[in-house]
Amino acid sequence: MRYLLYIFLIISMTGISQEIIDVTPIDTSELKVDHIVAIDNFETFYYLKDNIIYKEDKKGVSINYSNYQLGEITTANAFNPLKVNLFYQDFNSVIILDNRLAEIFKVDFNTVQPYKNVTHISTGFDNTLWIFNVDFQQLELYDYKTNTTRFSAVPVQSLVLDLESDYNFCWLLTENYLYQYNYFGSMISKIENTGFTEISKSNGHLILKKEDRLYFKHKKKEEIHPLNLPKLLINQFLLTNETLYIYDLEKLRTYQLKIN
């Protein structure tokens, strides 16, 4: 009896539900890009190839932007299509692009005062970026137009793995915990990380990756459910509304995820 109770406690502490969520296959297509940035509701496709960001509509018409002087693009974010941001970690800099991928702002964290050593960025509301300042182990909400920090979180004590945000919330995944903050800077949840390494968000819902499996977290619940997927090579995954995209560097697979 004690053994069964012990097992139950372990399962409860992980926060992972044994309920498996079904997904429905929709499409599989050939694709050769380095990284998918975003696929929006209008099937506009943002991707990276050869250190260039491309924006392609569903008719195949594309525009692009490159800046080889800043080295490799570390991350790109097109959550706000009017303010697409590119992070160049080697140069500690961010480029902000408009909806035509024209440069509208550059942030050089080497020259701002106080100096910021940034490892992760994500889109905030208005003229802000969520940034992780590794020198202080702090998440910050940074206003790049006024060069002011609107909010600094309490320092975290473990390695940061991923950072995602929308206009209302920010999720910081570390080796120990998954933190969620609102745009006022208040931490609203803290969940133990039991091995997740990456996250993707849409409308407050999360997809999380652990080893070669994907899991789902509803925005109103703390339980994390495994997705019922075939064994796949998952190089990248994205969630757009109820559409899940899985990319293996050769094929893009599309699934329907029913969210209640």
Rank of each mutant, 00 (worst) to 15 (best):
M1G: 15
M1K: 08
R2D: 07
L5Y: 11
L5D: 13
L5R: 10
L5H: 11
I11E: 10
T14W: 00
S17E: 12
I21G: 03
I21C: 01
D22A: 13
D22E: 11
I26C: 12
S29G: 08
S29I: 15
E30P: 02
L31T: 07
K32R: 13
D34C: 04
A38G: 03
F42Y: 09
F42H: 03
Y46W: 05
Y47S: 09
Y47G: 13
K49A: 06
D50S: 14
I52A: 08
I52C: 05
I53V: 12
Y54M: 08
K55G: 08
D57K: 00
K59F: 03
S62M: 01
N64D: 09
N64I: 04
N67W: 04
Q69S: 14
Q69T: 09
Q69D: 13
G71S: 15
G71Q: 06
I73N: 11
A78L: 01
A78E: 06
F79W: 11
L82A: 13
N85G: 08
F87L: 13
Y88N: 13
D90M: 10
D90H: 13
F91G: 06
N92Q: 06
V94C: 06
I95Y: 04
N99T: 09
R100V: 05
A102I: 04
I104F: 01
F105N: 15
K106I: 12
D108H: 09
D108Y: 13
T111V: 04
V112Y: 05
T119K: 01
S122G: 04
T123C: 06
T128L: 05
W130P: 13
F132M: 12
V134F: 12
E140A: 00
Y142E: 12
T148D: 14
T149N: 14
T149A: 13
R150K: 02
P155E: 08
P155A: 12
S165G: 03
D166A: 03
F169H: 01
F169Y: 07
F169N: 04
C170F: 11
C170H: 02
L172N: 04
L173E: 01
N176Q: 07
N176G: 05
Y177N: 15
Y179M: 02
Y183D: 11
Y183K: 11
F184T: 08
G185Y: 07
S186V: 09
S186E: 13
I188C: 03
I188W: 02
K190Y: 03
T194R: 00
G195L: 01
G195Y: 02
T197C: 13
I199E: 01
N203I: 05
N203P: 01
I207E: 07
L208H: 03
K209C: 11
D212Y: 02
R213F: 11
Y215R: 07
Y215W: 05
F216Y: 06
F216H: 02
E222D: 04
I224T: 11
H225T: 02
N228I: 08
P230E: 08
L233H: 10
L233V: 14
Q236W: 15
F237V: 10
E242C: 05
E242D: 14
Y245W: 14
D248N: 09
L249E: 15
E250R: 02
R253M: 09
T254Q: 15
Q256K: 15
L257S: 14
K258Q: 13
I259C: 00
N260I: 03
